[in-house]
Amino acid sequence: MSATPFTCRIPDAALADLRERLARTRLPDQAPEAPWTYGTDVGYLADLIAYWRDGFDWRAQEAALNAFPQAMVQVGDLAVHCLHAPGRGPEGGPAPRPLLLCHGWPGSVFEFLDIIPRLTDPAAYGGDPAQAFTVVAPSLPGYGFSFRPGQRRLGVEEMADTLAEMMGLLGYDRFLAQGGDWGAFVTTRMAWRYPERIAGLHLNMLPVRRDRTGADPTPEEAAHYERVAHWLKEETGYQWIQGTRPQTLAFALTDSPSGLAAWQVEKFRAWSDCGGTIEAAIPRERMLANIALYWFTGAIGSAAHPYFARMHRPWPIPDGERITVPTGYAAFPKEMVRPPRSLACGMFADIRRWTEMPRGGHFAALEQPALLADDIRAFAAAL
């Protein structure tokens, strides 16, 4: 069997070890400027650590994950973990269409626990049962339960090949694909490499080149390039570290759960539509479950590798190539980088749907599961 059932069960000893490490946290001083000026706020993290140690219920989050059918799929030398949730279509109607749902960094499959039921059983949310999907949501190879110590590191190119093979092993020769962050890169690469297998591509982040193209940009394009320049200057320090010295960083984040939390919560705050208060957009329980999954699996070093591969390889879509698969895009207002449609068309030749969302940020499935699910369904229904 290439696929075997999987249930998450973290040992009690690992939970006790985590609490002990959190209790021994040594915090830095807070710089005298405004909180969050130089990164994660000390006061916020101290409160989060105390809650993680004494209030957070991992077993409840574990049970929420285990409420979905899960599998380990052997793809060559890699064991890939996935949620595999069957859809509930209309009685006597066609089988629900398969949908591959891909997360990114610092995300995980915990991002998808609220959106999957909306996709597999839309009738339960007032939708059309004919628009149900069977959802396959993998932990990206090298992330979460798709990580084993010492396994080979993968960039988005190898991830795309691995997940395409995984879908075939699960019986899906043709499917829709959806992604954000690295998941957007992986699914876009799949759409380029396996266009005959991807029935439709839906993204909530567009992996469009950041460098300026053309001698005479439109005002909208020029404004976009200005935003990109600011983002590259102020927000990409983590990329340079993870893209050049991921192993060195892994020592600190594998040894200190508080350090791991500090490294990730800054991104949850900066990249979400939270108005400066993370929990206004992302439930604290779900965010801590996501961080804890990185901690328990020890996958933070491996999860950084796509940044190293991206910095040391050509762009994943070869120069001059375009994506011909029908594409939909959900443009959430607080996404980090939002290229205008004129630039997106340079890479995506068949954009069928472009939705300007009223709210939400980078972690779309976590922040706005209803909006994202509705847009995915509408895109697929129009194909």
Rank of each mutant, 00 (worst) to 15 (best):
A3G: 11
A13Q: 14
A14W: 01
A14Q: 15
A16C: 05
D17K: 12
L18D: 07
E20H: 12
R21P: 04
L22S: 04
T25H: 10
P28E: 12
P28F: 05
D29C: 13
D29A: 13
W36R: 13
T37K: 15
Y38P: 02
G43A: 10
Y44M: 09
Y44W: 09
L45T: 05
I49Y: 08
I49T: 13
I49S: 09
D54Y: 00
F56P: 01
D57N: 14
A60P: 05
A63P: 08
L65R: 08
A71Y: 12
M72R: 15
V75S: 03
V75R: 04
D77T: 14
V80W: 04
C82Q: 04
L83V: 14
L83Y: 05
R88D: 14
E91H: 13
P94S: 15
P94C: 13
R97H: 13
L99T: 04
L100K: 02
L100H: 07
G104M: 06
G104W: 10
W105D: 09
W105N: 10
E111H: 02
L113V: 12
D114G: 09
R118V: 06
L119T: 07
A124E: 02
G126Y: 01
G126N: 06
G127A: 02
A130I: 00
Q131D: 14
Q131M: 11
F133N: 08
Y143H: 07
G144E: 04
F147Y: 15
V156Y: 06
V156E: 03
A164L: 11
R174D: 00
F175E: 06
L176H: 14
L176V: 11
A177D: 02
A177E: 04
G183S: 09
T187K: 04
W192E: 15
R193C: 12
Y194D: 05
R197V: 06
A199M: 13
N204R: 08
V208M: 03
R212C: 03
P217R: 09
T218W: 06
P219M: 11
P219S: 08
E221I: 09
A223T: 13
L232N: 11
T236C: 14
W240E: 14
Q247K: 11
L249R: 07
L253A: 10
L260M: 07
Q264P: 02
V265Q: 07
E266D: 15
K267H: 03
A270K: 15
S272V: 02
S272D: 08
S272A: 11
C274Y: 03
G276K: 01
G276D: 00
A281M: 05
E285L: 00
R286Y: 05
R286P: 02
L288K: 07
A292V: 04
F296W: 03
A299L: 06
S302N: 03
A303L: 00
F308V: 01
P314G: 05
P316T: 01
D319L: 11
D319M: 05
V325P: 07
V325C: 03
P326S: 04
Y329F: 15
A330I: 08
A331E: 14
K334E: 12
E335S: 12
P340W: 03
R341V: 14
A344S: 10
C345V: 13
A349Y: 07
D350G: 09
W354K: 05
E356Y: 10
G361R: 04
H362S: 05
A364E: 00
A364F: 01
L366D: 02
D374A: 13
I376T: 08
R377V: 02
R377T: 03
A378F: 05
A382Y: 05
A382T: 06
A382E: 14
L383R: 14
